[in-house]
Design a protein around this nucleic acid. Structure first.
Lengths: 113, 113
DNA sequence: CTGTATCCAATATGATACTG
DNA sequence: CAGTATCATATTGGATACAG
């Protein structure tokens, strides 16, 4: 470990990825490339419009995703992962793998969830 | 990307590492191996006893850190990272590196923080 | 020294109704 | 279709006092 705790930037990465629905939103965007608002809403069970909008705005603000509006009625808005946003992929994969193993670890040790 | 969003386990990993002071606590433990409660409290500026205790309990519960009590007066309690806890190190390093680059990315694009 | 307990403020999330 | 506005609840974290 060579990270100096005094000047660690783990938080900056966490800020992007933390939020009740952000990981799953990111996974859908990484998987599909481009997806419409309602399509995403249907894909993420139980998410409210408010939270979907909020998370999408935050990710857009950080240049992780792009928002494309088609000026038509009814409106059509497409979201996609940016080139830059794809740099998060290894981290999400690492967390997914660790999380999977952690579930197993807890089962092996009868740790109450 | 080959993670199925429907069965993603990113959350399980995030749960461990999310919390206002958890990353810096983990970094100190990874760096020092063993550290006493008050030493840790002094190392993490502004943290309250309540939050330090809470985070340490949560990490212990997940088998990331170990707590050793020396039955003496005044009490002495040492915290250390477990073998298993060390498996988080690559993820923290990856996030730290990504976070560092992200700060630079934002500066390059004049993104308001 | 290593905690707990209590009360309080801030933030995150949810439910629901409304709009161009 | 893709949002916004409003009100309510839940969770997180902080301040402070106290205890073995």
């Amino acid at each position: 470990m060579n990270i100096d705790p005094e000047q660690c930037h783990v938080e900056e990465a966490l800020d992007i990825v933390v939020g009740k629905w952000k990981p799953i939103i990111l996974l859908y965007l990484l998987k599909n490339g481009t997806i419409r608002f309602n399509e995403l809403k249907r894909s993420v069970p139980n998410i409210t419009q408010k939270m979907l909008t909020k998370h999408l705005r935050e990710l857009e603000e950080e240049d992780i995703i792009a928002r494309k509006v088609y000026p038509q009625v009814p409106p059509k808005v497409e979201y996609s992962i940016t080139e830059y946003g794809r740099s998060l992929e290894p981290i999400l994969e690492a967390m997914h793998e660790w999380g999977t193993k952690h579930q197993q670890h807890k089962r092996n040790n009868n740790v109450p969830s």
